[in-house]
């Protein structure tokens, strides 16, 4: 089994189309979910999954089989998602999705009103994409910081710093709106 996987990765490294198809089928769901966590828009996540695999397909010669496919694909997918976030109008991304879920979130604190949750979500949507990605993956999706760091191409310490800066900016924005977290 391990040998088979290794063969597929080596064949992909040589530009083999069948190996690419096998890797696509094996990893499309994981790449899609990873991107969806970042962009929080299913239609965009599908398009970005295609875009990520297109970038993967073009970059086969730079692939290093010994380092594995998952991390490499996730890093390319994160970059594609970041490019997308930068092109989006900031507030639109979260508000519609969040509004639908705000009605009855699973573990909502009754002391925090739906209106405040909406304001937090909107303020979060206005954060710089680099900070928002780090906070989304590390705080909201609770992904291991090591994975977040690898996918962003930065150190774990840098992830922690970005998360801290995101939360600090968020708190400042909420305070500006008269909400004391």
């Amino acid at each position: 089994m391990q040998n088979e996987l290794s063969d597929v990765l080596n064949l992909f490294r040589l530009g083999d189309a069948d190996a690419f198809e096998m890797l696509f089928h094996e990893h499309q769901r994981a790449v899609y979910v990873w991107i969806l966590r970042i962009v929080r828009n299913p239609a965009a996540a599908e398009d970005l999954t295609i875009e990520s695999f297109w970038r993967i397909h073009r970059a086969y010669a730079r692939f290093e089989p010994e380092r594995g496919f998952d991390g490499w694909a996730r890093r390319i997918a994160t970059r594609a998602a970041l490019d997308w976030l930068r092109t989006q109008k900031q507030e639109n991304e979260l508000s519609s999705e969040v509004c639908a879920e705000l009605a009855a979130p699973a573990e909502a604190d009754p002391a925090v009103s739906a209106e405040i949750r909406l304001k937090i979500a909107q303020a979060f949507g206005r954060l710089p994409p680099k900070l928002r990605i780090a906070a989304t993956l590390a705080v909201i999706e609770e992904q291991p910081q090591k994975d977040v760091a690898a996918s962003l191409g930065i150190s774990v310490a840098a992830v922690k710093l970005r998360v801290y800066r995101a939360l600090r900016l968020l708190r400042k924005e909420l305070e500006r709106q008269g909400i004391t977290p």
Binding site: E101, E107, I120, A121, V139, E141, L167, L170
Partner: peptide
């Protein structure tokens, strides 16, 4: 802040 954010933006 983390808790508030998790409530405002639920995981996918």
């Amino acid at each position: 802040m983390k808790k508030l954010l998790q409530q405002a933006v639920p995981p996918v």
